[in-house]
């Protein structure tokens, strides 16, 4: 390589100071929040709350059950075994999950997954061969490849960095199914992190007994390093604060969560009161648990003063 190339490489490698980026992030957040206030009025939290309360699991499960009743179950497990090179389309009746407000529709060879009251799909599911799986995982810009061993079914997760207007990350989940793979895809932020993991961690596949882990499950959201329980439902998620409904709250579970966070490398900041504060690499996360709500407040060190 010539020295001239090296000069360009040096310029390419120039990284803006992390401190400036953090300050800029804080400043940008304040600007767009202020700008957005005028547009949105006073709605989000109560709207979400109302929605979640109104949508009972019976509605979703009932919807899926109704489809189950109407579907012909006979061809699900391969059907004609003498003639099997073709991958069988997935059937709606094979799946259910605990996440409310998210449902599937049968389309072509798979399922298209929607959020209630949204026209744009948030994901899809289909059966893929080993070769197709290889192709998928090697074609995109996959940044995370992880085994979710303690989930109901052994699951491989890949996170793809997607540069689209309405999608930033694409989650790919592969669950082994004989020689093939059941393949789920979800787009973030069409579906929030907590919703994606809530769905996958409560997935049930017909005629396949799910593994029930004897401890709560935790995951990272996106590329983050902070752990979150999988049984969360978003109420409001903002840059500096997130409120989630915690589906299985208990004193014991909260203590377990705190233990897990400490074990994952986050330092607990001594303090009194209901809030528990953790710090790691310049990020401070304060957690408070109230009834069925977990509230997270995020701060970054070296921020400009308000």
């Amino acid at each position: 390589m010539s020295k001239s190339h090296e000069d360009w490489d040096e310029l390419k490698s120039y990284a803006p100071p992390e401190e400036a980026k953090e300050n800029g992030r804080h400043r940008l957040w304040k600007s767009i929040r202020n700008e957005g206030e005028g547009l949105k009025g006073n709605k989000t939290k109560n709207k979400w709350r109302g929605l979640i309360t109104a949508c009972s699991s019976i509605l979703v499960c009932g919807g899926l059950l109704a489809v189950i009743m109407n579907n012909n179950l006979s061809g699900q497990n391969g059907g004609d075994e003498g003639n099997q090179p073709e991958i069988q389309p997935l059937d709606l009746s094979q799946f259910s999950w605990g996440l409310e407000g998210v449902y599937a529709k049968k389309e072509a060879e798979g399922l298209v997954i929607y959020k209630e009251n949204e026209e744009v799909p948030v994901g899809n599911a289909r059966l893929v061969s080993e070769e197709e799986k290889e192709e998928i995982t090697q074609s995109g810009a996959m940044y995370v490849d992880k085994q979710l061993a303690e989930f109901p079914y052994p699951t491989e997760m890949y996170i793809e960095h997607v540069k689209m207007k309405d999608t930033v990350l694409r989650y790919h989940f592969f669950i082994p199914d004989h020689e093939d793979w059941i393949y789920f895809v979800f787009d973030y932020p069409k579906l929030e992190y907590a919703e994606i993991f809530n769905l996958i961690s409560t997935l049930k596949i017909q005629d396949r007994e799910p593994y029930i882990h004897n401890e709560p499950l935790y995951v990272n959201h996106g590329y983050g390093i902070f752990l979150y329980p999988t049984d969360l439902i978003p109420v409001t998620v903002e840059y500096d604060e997130a409120v989630y409904i915690w589906e299985n709250p208990s004193q014991e579970s909260f203590a377990h969560y705190v233990e897990k966070l400490e074990a994952s490398g986050w330092s607990r900041v001594p303090g009194i009161g209901k809030e528990i504060t953790f710090e790691s690499s310049g990020e401070i996360v304060e957690i408070s648990w109230n009834d069925d709500e977990l509230v997270y407040k995020y701060q970054y060190t070296n921020q400009e003063d308000e």
Binding site: P16, R25, W29, G36, T44
Partner: peptide, 20 residues
Amino acid sequence: EKDKRQLVMEWYDLYYDDIY
């Protein structure tokens, strides 16, 4: 509105260095 803000913050994280 929340999604929009979230999206722009994600873009910030992804493209800050390039734009800077």
